[in-house]
Structure formats: C-alpha cells, structure tokens
C-alpha cells in the first residue's frame, strides 16, 4: 500500500469509479432510487390541491428530496458490511475511501437534484400565483448545494450506522434527521427566496453558507472516518 497525497487521491478516484461502475451494473439499485423519487413526487402531486402555496411547495420538495437522499445514500456502505470490507480494510487507506464515497455522493446529488426538481415542476408546476420561478438559476443552484450538504452529512451518518450490525434503516434516520435540520432550514429559505425572486442582497450569503456547510461536514467526516473504519 503506497502512502502520500497522490496515492490518497488515486485511491479516492478508484473508489468513486468502483462505486459508479457497481451502480451501473446493479441497475436495479439506481432504478429503485429513481422510482422512489418519482413516486414520492407523484404522492406530493396527488395530495396537494393544485393551489400549492410557496411554503407548502418548498416543504414538499424538500421532504421528497430528503427521503430520496436517505434511499440513495443509505446503502452506500452496505457492501462494506461483508467480506469486501475485510478486503478494503487491508488494501485501501480510510481517507481515500471516504473521499471516494464523498465524490460518489456529489454525483448522486447531481442526478437526484435534476430528477427531483424536473419531475416536481413537471407534475406540480410552480406554486400558485407564480407564472414561473423568480430566479430559476438560483433555484437549481440552491437545490444542488442544499442537496450536497444533505448527502455529505448522510455519508457520515451512514458510515456510523453501517458499523452497527443490528441497525436497520431507522438508525440512519434517527441519527441523521437532527443533524440535517440546519441544512434544511437554510435551503428551504433559499428555495422560497429563489421562487419569489427575492433580491440577491438578502440571499447572497445563503448559498455560501450551504457550500461552507458541505465542505465543513466533508472535512469533519474525513477526520473522523478513520476512527469509524478502524476495528
């Protein structure tokens, strides 16, 4: 096993590639996440009365996103419960592994944001009283940044939960939901602002804070992951 910055970076890329390749090979997993997201959007569409206020629209969007995120990221460490784990423990350094998983989470976020936003707008349209989003670019950027801060936190939580043999999916949710509240509060504010076209000067710091939160949780996950991984 080589060490040093370059080797960590190569490990990260190798892990991310492996994850991605496995996702494509086991197509049913990707499909199940997509199906979950679209079905949730359709449930939101059916349960609203087509006069959705901006607040309700934002709340439903982020509920759908949050639970799709749990489905997508929640199984990120499933393979490492089995013999693969033993193999990886001996061959891969933990920092490279978590960086690879985080890189994979960025890809997941991008796909999920595109899918959820597109189907949400397709089915529900814009909130009542709005012809269209006030700042569509900011809406997409905010959703991606918010999604990223959600998935990076979930990567950490899933890593912890995956070490608990008896844990079901509920443990990730119990550990994760309180940790995700700051992100959700910030991103719903940003989404509402983007929908209503609130001026930049009142929103300017929000995307920065979301980005900083993603970076911060990622760094914290990188520092703490070796302790999770060690056994």
């Amino acid at each position: 096993m080589r060490t040093g910055f370059q080797s960590t970076f190569q490990t990260a890329i190798a892990v991310a590639k492996m994850e991605w390749r496995l996702e494509w090979r086991q197509g049913h997993q990707l499909a199940s996440v997509a199906l979950f997201a679209v079905a949730s959007v359709y449930v939101a569409f059916q349960s609203s009365d087509h006069e959705t206020s901006t607040g309700a629209w934002t709340a439903m969007l982020w509920l759908v996103y949050l639970f799709s995120g749990f489905t997508a990221v929640g199984r990120l460490f499933d393979r490492e419960r089995t013999a693969t784990r033993q193999y990886l423990r001996w061959t891969v350094e933990p920092l490279g592994l978590i960086l690879g998983k985080l890189a994979h989470a960025i890809l997941t976020t991008t796909g999920l944001t595109a899918l959820v936003l597109a189907t949400f707008v397709l089915f529900l349209g814009w909130p009542s009283g709005l012809e269209q989003a006030g700042k569509p670019g900011l809406l997409v950027l905010g959703a991606w940044l918010g999604g990223l801060s959600v998935t990076t936190t979930l990567v950490f939580v899933t890593a912890v939960a995956s070490q608990v043999q008896s844990a079901g999916a509920a443990l990730s949710a119990v550990l994760g939901l309180p940790l995700l509240l700051p992100q959700i509060i910030l991103v719903t504010r940003l989404t509402r602002g983007a929908l209503l076209g609130t001026p930049w000067n009142t929103l300017g710091e929000l995307p920065l804070f979301l980005a900083a939160l993603s970076v911060g949780t990622s760094i914290l996950a990188c520092i703490l992951f070796p302790y999770i991984w060690r056994a």
Partner: peptide, 12 residues
C-alpha cells in the same frame, strides 16, 4: 465499538 462509534458521533 460502543466507545469508538459513539465518540465519533458525539464529536460530529
């Protein structure tokens, strides 16, 4: 395991 994982979670 309890000590290690709960400490990690507590710090985070």
């Amino acid at each position: 395991r309890v000590g290690r994982l709960s400490a990690v979670y507590n710090v985070f």
